[in-house]
Amino acid sequence: MNDLSEQILNATRARHVKQIPAYRFVLARFFTGFLFVLTMLVGSLAFGLVLEALWPEARQGMRGQGFHQMTLGALPLILGLFTGLVVILGAVVFRHFRYGYRVRGIVVVPIVLALSLVLGVANYKLDLTFKVHRTMMHNVMPYRMAFEGQRRELWVNPKSGRLAGVVISKNSTGLVLQDFSGHTWIVRGQVPLNNPKQVRVLGQICGNDFCAESIEPWNMMGGMGPMGPGMGRGMGHKMGNHNW
């Protein structure tokens, strides 16, 4: 035995150096795998929420609303960026797999991205993102506010047959409404019985007034689609699927 080997073996004894049990390395690898799965889940949920916000049914519900107004809303963009960040994070975690470094980044990123997108569509189809979206709308104020601003903007569009705002006064033939942009309207139509303070109206402009086909409370309980309660995806097939 030469000097160094003797020295090292003595050091292991003197310093009580022990061999690290194999299970610790297995756990470390498991943790890396878990992190990767987590990033994929978060990424797919974020992408699923983008789909929730951009679903064509919701656009059709807007009757003539420009596509860009739907797609360039802040939240889908933020969620899209978030999906991108999660994909990058997933690629970084992938590199920490035992032989992850052997795969080129240019290959890893598209794989991770594709995985996130496929899982995102699956989550969307399985309604998982819808449930997350609904929960967040009820419980996460910034998320709700992000939708609320977009929603108000989309609903104050009388030329497209939509109007929403605060009820100033009402009588048997209709109500006086100040829309969310500050204009005052006389709305003709059947007023809801439960005296809502804020309403949304579907109808059309008739002369200087707005003739309502339906008047509903602004925060009516219903499907919480991207267009808010009772509109878009929430008013469509989801209302039938979810008892809420």
């Binding site: 160094l4 080997s5 090292i8 310093r15 022990k18 690290i20 049990p21 390395f25 035992r98 032989y99």
Partner: peptide, 23 residues
């Protein structure tokens, strides 16, 4: 160098169960 080598071999000793014959 001697210190570095000592650290290397001590790590080999403690982490040997991490070694994977795949490399």
């Amino acid at each position: 160098i001697e210190d570095i080598l000592q650290d290397v071999f001590l790590r080999v000793f403690s982490h040997i169960r991490e070694f994977d014959p795949g490399m």
